[in-house]
């Protein structure tokens, strides 16, 4: 290259588009502002009622809470003042627990069946459709169903209520499990198969653990919803004033049912107990949520980064 060559005349610098915010035009920033306001607004709209409900229940119910309230029998004379909700606490734990024990394993198995064994078969489609329909069945109808097939024959019991709650939870657990299994990366299955793995072992050792956190969350939502159900329990467990730890015999009661019964009364005693029961129920659901979140966090921390 010759150095004597005259350098080419510098080309006129083309107007470079500015990178400043203002150059985007006022309308764009206005749109951004409107969108942000709408998003924050809807967040507030969604959160305010939640905070109000929980706050109000705490304010009204906190005075009732005491050891006696959580353990004493429910007063026979419903208009009387003072504690107890012991039978309802026990009943809630027993009945929701029994429903969970029945519905979650069955639902997880059902979800596995739907996603892994019958994804494209006619039977699979029928089962999935029925599960969807079942999700939409009003809870009181589920109570009536259990009443007619179980209570009429074997009488009321905590177990009858657990059956009704379990039937409500089942389709939710089935559908969540199926969806969560669908999200597991196909590469994970493929690499398990590429090591000589067979179907059942691969599902059990690779697919299910990968989907576990999601399944736990889904099951938890179903349990929380069941713990608050009232309608299907009204004619399957009736009510009692003394703790009934026998799930299979005699009437029982839960916090949700007690809220319903006590809040109907005009006297201050039962009113106060209803608020206390509501707070207890919220607390129980909250504690279980935290527990299972913690469990699934421990579980996934072990396997993720």
């Amino acid at each position: 290259m010759s150095m004597t060559m005259t350098p080419p005349a510098p080309a006129p610098t083309p107007a470079r588009p500015s990178i400043r915010r203002s150059s985007a035009g006022p309308w764009r920033s206005a749109k951004s502002a409107i969108a942000s306001t709408l998003i924050v607004g809807s967040l507030v709209v969604a959160i305010v009622p939640l905070v109000l409900i929980v706050g109000y229940v705490i304010v009204r119910g906190i005075d009732s809470i005491s050891w006696a309230f959580l353990t004493d029998d429910i007063p026979i004379l419903s208009r009387s003042e003072g504690p107890g909700m012991g039978p309802a606490v026990v009943g809630t734990l027993l009945i929701t627990g029994a429903a969970t024990v029945m519905a979650v394993p069955l639902g997880v198995l059902g979800g596995i069946y739907l996603n892994e064994y019958s994804a494209r078969t006619a039977l699979g489609r029928v089962v999935r459709f029925l599960a969807e329909v079942m999700t939409g069945v009003p809870s009181i109808v589920m109570g009536l169903f259990i009443y007619s097939i179980w209570v009429l024959r074997f009488g009321v019991s905590g177990f009858a209520g657990a059956l009704a709650l379990g039937c409500l939870m089942l389709p939710v657990v089935i559908r969540t499990t199926e969806e969560m299994l669908k999200l597991v990366a196909p590469e994970l299955r493929e690499s398990a198969y590429a090591l000589g793995g067979r179907k059942a072992g691969t599902i059990l050792r690779v697919v299910l653990p990968a989907a576990a956190p999601g399944i736990v969350s889904g099951a938890l939502l179903a349990v929380a919803r069941a713990a608050g159900e009232t309608a299907p329990l009204l004619f399957t467990i009736l009510t009692v004033n003394a703790t009934n730890t026998n799930l299979f015999h005699g009437p029982n009661t839960t916090l949700s049912v007690q809220i319903f019964r006590n809040a109907q009364q005009v006297f201050p005693g039962p009113q106060q107990r209803a608020w206390g029961a509501a707070l207890t129920l919220i607390a129980i659901v909250f504690i279980f949520t935290l527990l299972s979140r913690g469990l699934s966090a421990v579980f996934s921390r072990k396997h993720r980064v």
Partner: peptide, 21 residues
């Protein structure tokens, strides 16, 4: 086929370890 895959292993395009140790 599972026995075939045990003898004929496969490594995939994207690294895809199991969510395990």
């Amino acid at each position: 086929a599972a026995e075939v895959r045990r003898r004929v292993g496969m490594v995939f395009q994207k690294p895809n370890p199991f969510p395990k140790s």
